[in-house]
């Protein structure tokens, strides 16, 4: 427990000390929130209804997909995992603790957005706070899991950016953050359901914000939860300590299994 606390404290401080992580955890999401808050309601007044969930989900995407994978790849490439292995630090701690510290940063950012949006932009607050918190945590778990998995299977920092952007950019365009899911063409909608952002926005609209869901919101929560747990499990399974020692237990393509719950959800919900 003592080791976990020291590790957690150090990782949490890193999220603020490291300029790249500070950008992804705080500056980018909060800067984007302010920019969108000032611009979007003027252009598109109904966006105000969605401002809190959309910007909270954006914060999650930024801190996890853009913040978590690269430090993992760098640590592996610079022999930090080798040093951890020699000193008995388990792979589970290496993968789970950065995700948990990111979730704490996300709670802070989410609280800032939720607390200030009604005053700054007249955005409505969630109607069901419990569901809002549950969906927030589930979405954070799903994205943190995917991000850790990207960090584990990426062979280099350059590839990490590519994999992260493959999820981040469609999430921004199709995930229901800027444009309602209902406005998407059918085929684009089906594709969008493979993205955690779509599931989170659907669940937030249907269960927390008093709006209507486009498909089963409980199914969305279930898909996020199962995908998150599956992603962490796959990350532990595919983890390798050393970029020079390429032996790993499974093929990196197994990581795609993390999207299976969303794919099944398309047919079930």
């Amino acid at each position: 427990m003592n080791a976990f606390l020291h590790h957690y404290t150090f990782e949490f401080r890193t999220g603020i000390r490291n300029k790249q992580l500070l950008l992804m955890n705080y500056l980018f999401p909060l800067g984007f929130y302010l920019m969108m808050g000032f611009i979007m309601p003027a252009i598109n007044p109904p966006f105000r209804e969605n401002l809190i969930p959309a910007l909270v989900v954006f914060g999650i995407l930024s801190a996890t997909l853009l913040g978590i994978p690269d430090p993992l790849v760098n640590a592996r490439e610079h022999g930090i995992f080798r040093s951890y292995k020699i000193n008995g630090i388990p792979s589970l701690s290496i993968l789970v603790i950065p995700a948990l510290t990111t979730m704490l940063h996300l709670v802070i950012v989410g609280a800032i957005i939720t607390a200030t949006a009604p005053f700054l932009f007249h955005a409505p607050l969630p109607m069901n706070w419990l569901n809002f918190v549950v969906i927030f945590l589930t979405m954070s778990l799903a994205c943190a899991g995917l991000s850790v998995l990207i960090g584990v299977v990426s062979p280099s920092s350059r590839m990490t950016v590519l994999w992260s952007q493959i999820i981040f950019v469609p999430s921004m365009l199709l995930g229901g953050l800027m444009l309602p899911y209902s406005a998407l063409p059918d085929i684009a909608g089906k594709f969008a359901q493979l993205l955690p952002a779509t599931q989170a926005m659907n669940a937030l609209n249907g269960l927390a914000m008093g709006g209507s869901a486009s498909f089963s919101p409980w199914g969305s929560i279930l898909a996020l939860l199962v995908s998150g747990v599956l992603a962490f499990g796959l990350a532990v399974y595919l983890f390798s300590w050393d970029s020079r020692n390429t032996a790993r237990r499974g093929h990196p393509l197994l990581a795609l299994l993390a999207f299976l719950p969303y794919a099944i959800g398309i047919f079930l919900f």
Binding site: H7, F10, R13, T14, R17, N18, A75, S83, Y84
Partner: peptide
């Protein structure tokens, strides 16, 4: 190669490894 994160301080590293 020392194998430590860039942002860790000697104090933190000592606590961190000693704890494990």
């Amino acid at each position: 190669s020392a194998g430590l994160p860039e942002s860790i301080t000697p104090n933190e590293a000592m606590k961190f490894f000693a704890a494990y």
